[in-house]
Amino acid sequence: MNPMLIVAKQQFSDIVREPLVIIILLVLIILSFLNGAASMSLLPLSDIQLLDGNDHFLSVGLSNTLYHTSFLLTMLSMFIGVFTIAEERMGGSMSVLLTKPLYRRDVVGGKFAGLALFLFLVTAMIVMLCVSSIMVFYRGPTSFGEMVLRVSSYIIVLSLSSTLTLGISFLIGIFFKNIFEILLFNGIFLFLDWRYTLPQALNGLRFLIPAGLYTTIIDGVNQHYILKTNVPYDVWLSAAMPYILFMLFAIIAVFLFSCYVFNAQGRD
């Protein structure tokens, strides 16, 4: 078996047992069920009052879960980045791993791949839970095909965004040598990423910040919001595609830079 795959597999099984990961997943599950139950009374009202041509299953029901799901999954990706690189380096288990017949790039690559896969599966599971709980408590979408298209795009974008945060957390964990500094910078990053609003003059550059890039993709350009069905899907996709490609590029760049820094530290 490829050594990177072995590391990825090990990483995947390690992270599932982390108490904080379990807490965040529980919060997400509770919020998803609650939203499903709330849609029983909220969506019939929306169907009557909002005559905007949207499928309210997506534009109201699923939309209500978008902020907390995105935010909590970003937090989760940052946290698992800290647990993986920072804690293992400080606890000494990384040194043990590096004595094995493995390239340093296999270690970083394997860990990153395992966690990215974990984030993708968690994102898919949570979004599907939100969708299915609305279906159970209220009704299905107007067009099943449209729903599959938009929800799968949402899952892909959200898991890419989480992977980018994971990459940044990896980079912070590799770059700094002290756990306090790593925690501090991760905390600052999370706060500025999600809570700081750029001055109006710089608003056009918000796609350079991970959360800003994510919201630019989800909101689309010119208000082509991904969960609004009154705008055709391909209009959203063509507006969002350059930013999705930029996000992919950012993930690769951050990952390669992390590998480079990790290798450089090995040479020192």
Partner: peptide
């Protein structure tokens, strides 16, 4: 996400 949905449920 939470309090609003508590109201609805």
């Amino acid at each position: 996400s939470f309090a609003g949905n508590i109201y609805n449920v």
